[in-house]
Design a protein around this nucleic acid. Structure first.
Lengths: 340, 340
DNA sequence: CAGAAATGCGCAATCGATTGCATTTATATT
DNA sequence: AATATAAATGCAATCGATTGCGCATTTCTG
C-alpha cells in the first residue's frame, strides 16, 4: 500500500556524509553542534521534507507528550468545555490530548484507562463514570507514579490532585436563595449518592435548611439518575405528596428543565407557584422561558487548571497533591425570582 | 523520578528462560507457539503485571492506531457530537482519537495538522477553520497517502473522502417553508462564502426564491461571521431597510437566537410579524421560547460515518473516494409557524 | 527404521531517534 | 613546535516489540 519513503535522520546523515547523532543533535539545537553544520542539516532536512517521527522519539524518551482525558460523555456541554480548556493549555505546552468517553459505564472506563496506560500517556485527567465503584484501574496510575488528576467527579479514597467545584456551597446557596425568595417547602432532586458531587450538593441543601431552622423532610428528596425522564418522574412524585413542595432544587439543569415543562403543562406557574433552580448553567438554561436559575460551573477554566496542574506534575515541578476547589456562582434567573 | 520498572517481554522471557520472540508471539496468539507455552507465558505476564508498550509496537509496525480529529471548537454542540460519534466507532475498532481545536485560526490548524503528522496518526478527520485558505498542510496527507476525511467543512480542491450535509437542499427547504408560511420578503444571514457549507445554504435560498418566482434582492443578504453579535448587527441592518424583510433565514442557530431576542425587545412578534429559521438544531433551539425552526444536522452520525470511512481506508479495504451527503431534516417549530 | 514433514522456538535485524563516551579536529598556550 | 585545551563529531547501545529465516525436535510415512 503506502510507499514507505518517509525520510529519517539517517537519510539526512547519508546525504551529508555525517552521522545520525549529529543530525539528531542539530535538529534539537544541541550546543555541541556548530552553527554551520546545523544550518546545512536543517537545509537538507527541509529539502527532503523531513518530519521527525514522534513515535520513535517517544519510545526512546519514555515520554509520549500525550495527556489522556476521560469523560462520561464528550457531547455534553460541561465536559466539552473542560476538554476545550484542557486542550488549549496542553497544546500550547506541546502536549497532545487523547480523549475517550466512558458513556458512564464502568466497564468501558476500565478498558479506556488501561488502553491509555498501554499507550503510555504522560498523565490522565478523568471524571469518573457514574457507575464506577471499583478503582483498581486508577490505582494503577498511582502505583506507577503517573500523574492523575480528577475533575468534577473525584474518588475520595484515592489521594491525588483534584479539581472540583464547591458543590456543598453551591447546594447551600441555592437553598438559601430559595428561602430568601420566600419559598417554604423546598424539595431536592438528587443524583447518585456514590458521586461526591451530588452527595455534597444534597448536604449543602440540608445544611441550609438547618441553618434557617427549617425542618428537614426526607420525603422531599428524590434520588435518581438525573436524566430528563427521571426529572419528570421525580417531580410527578413530589407534587403528588399530601404536602407538596413549593420549590425544587434540581441536581442539574436537565431535570430542572424537564420538571419545569411538566409543571407548566399542569398549569403551575413558575416562579410564582413553584420555584426552580438547576445546577451547571447549561447553555439552554439562560435561553429557555422562563430562564432557569442555576449554579455556574466554570468548565473551561476547570479544564485549563487540570491541564496546568498535570503538566506541572509531569514535568516534576511539583510533588504535593492538592485539591483545587473552584468557587461556584449562583446565577439568578426567572425560574426562582419572585422579586424579593 | 518515576522508577522505571515497567516489565517488558524480555523480563517475561528471562523469567521462563525462553526468547522474547516467543513471548511476543505467544501474547499475540501466533499459531506457531504451542498452547502449553502460551499459557505459561500469559501466566507470568499476569503475575508481573505486564502491559504491552504500545509505543514500541507502533514504531515497529509503523502504525499508531490513532485517528486525529481537528475541529474549529470542541466546545460546540455540533462538533462535540461529531467527536462523540467518531470516538465511539474508533474505540470499538481499536483506535484512539487525538483531538485538537483550531479555534478557527488557520495558523493553529496548520500547526495541529503537522503535529499530527509527526505523531503518525493513521488518518485525519477534519472540519477546516473558517480562516483557512491555503491547503498545503492537508495536501501533505494526500501526498503521503494518509487517509483524510473532511466533514461538514470540506475543501473542494482536495479530492478525498467527504461527509457533508446537503446544505443546498437545507437552504432550499428552509426558504420554501418560509414561503409556504406566507412570508413575502425573506432575508438571509449568510456565513463566510469561502466555506462551501455557507455558500451552498445561500444558493439553496436563492434557488428557492427563483423557483417560486420571487425576485432576488441582494440587499436582503448579509454576510458575516455568524456570531451572536454579528446576528444582532445584521438584523438591525436588515430591519432598518426601507423595505425590511418579514422573515429571516439565519445561517446558524446562534444568529437566529440573537436576532430573535433583538426583535422581541423591539416589540416585534415572532412568528406573526417576522419568521425566523436557523440552521444546525443546536440543543437550545428547541427549548427557547419561541422555539426555533431549524435544520437538523446529524452530528453524531456524521462522526460515526467519518470514523467508519477512515478506518476502512486505513485498513485498505477501500480505495475510491466518496462524498457522503447526509440528508437534512427541516424541524419546524414556533419561530416560523404561522399555522399555514 | 530411515527419511520426510511438521511443529516449536531462537537469532538477530529492524522501526527511528537519542545519548554517554570516545575520538577526531581546531584553537590556544608555553 | 609541542603540548594542553576546547570544540565538533562519530560509535554503538538503547527504548520495547516484531518477524524472516533457520535450527532443532517431534511426529508421520512407507
Amino acid at each position: 500500500m503506502t510507499k514507505n519513503s518517509e525520510p529519517t535522520i539517517h537519510d539526512i546523515a547519508r546525504e551529508l556524509k555525517i552521522s545520525a547523532s549529529t543530525v539528531s543533535r542539530a535538529l534539537n539545537d544541541n550546543p555541541r553542534i556548530s552553527l554551520k553544520t546545523k544550518e546545512k542539516i536543517k537545509a537538507v532536512a527541509d529539502s527532503l521534507g523531513y518530519r521527525p517521527n514522534t513515535l520513535a522519539s517517544n519510545l526512546r524518551n519514555k515520554k509520549s507528550n500525550t495527556i489522556g482525558i476521560v469523560v462520561p460523555l464528550i457531547n455534553r456541554y460541561f465536559f466539552s468545555a473542560v476538554i476545550s480548556g484542557a486542550e488549549d493549555v496542553a497544546f500550547k505546552a506541546g502536549y497532545n490530548v487523547v480523549i475517550s468517553q466512558s458513556n458512564d459505564l464502568a466497564a468501558k472506563e476500565i478498558n479506556i484507562v488501561q488502553s491509555m496506560f498501554s499507550n503510555r500517556v504522560d498523565g490522565l485527567i478523568i471524571s469518573i463514570a457514574m457507575q464506577t465503584d471499583t478503582f483498581d484501574h486508577l490505582k494503577l496510575f498511582q502505583r506507577k507514579h503517573i500523574p492523575l488528576v480528577f475533575f468534577d467527579r473525584a474518588v475520595p479514597e484515592i489521594d491525588t490532585d483534584k479539581i472540583v467545584v464547591d458543590d456543598f456551597a453551591g447546594g447551600y446557596r441555592v437553598t438559601q436563595h430559595l428561602i430568601d425568595q420566600g419559598y417554604k417547602r423546598i424539595g431536592h432532586l438528587a443524583g447518585p449518592q456514590n458521586l461526591r458531587t451530588y452527595f455534597d450538593r444534597k448536604n449543602g441543601y440540608i445544611e441550609a435548611l438547618r441553618k434557617n431552622g427549617i425542618a428537614f423532610d426526607e420525603s422531599l428528596i428524590n434520588v435518581n439518575r438525573l436524566t430528563s425522564d427521571d426529572g419528570v418522574t421525580a417531580i410527578k412524585l413530589l407534587m403528588s405528596l399530601p404536602n407538596p413542595p413549593d420549590a425544587i432544587f434540581c441536581g442539574n439543569d436537565t431535570t430542572a428543565l424537564s420538571a419545569m415543562i411538566y409543571l407548566r403543562d399542569k398549569g403551575i406557574r413558575i416562579p410564582e407557584d413553584v420555584g426552580i433552580v438547576g445546577f451547571s448553567n447549561e447553555p439552554f438554561s439562560q435561553v429557555v422561558s422562563p430562564s432557569i436559575s442555576t449554579i455556574a460551573q466554570p468548565g473551561f477554566v476547570m479544564g485549563q487548571k487540570a491541564a496546568e496542574l498535570i503538566i506541572r506534575k509531569i514535568e516534576n515541578r511539583e510533588r504535593t497533591y492538592q485539591t483545587i476547589v473552584l468557587p461556584t456562582e449562583l446565577v439568578i434567573r426567572e425560574s426562582s425570582n419572585r422579586g424579593k
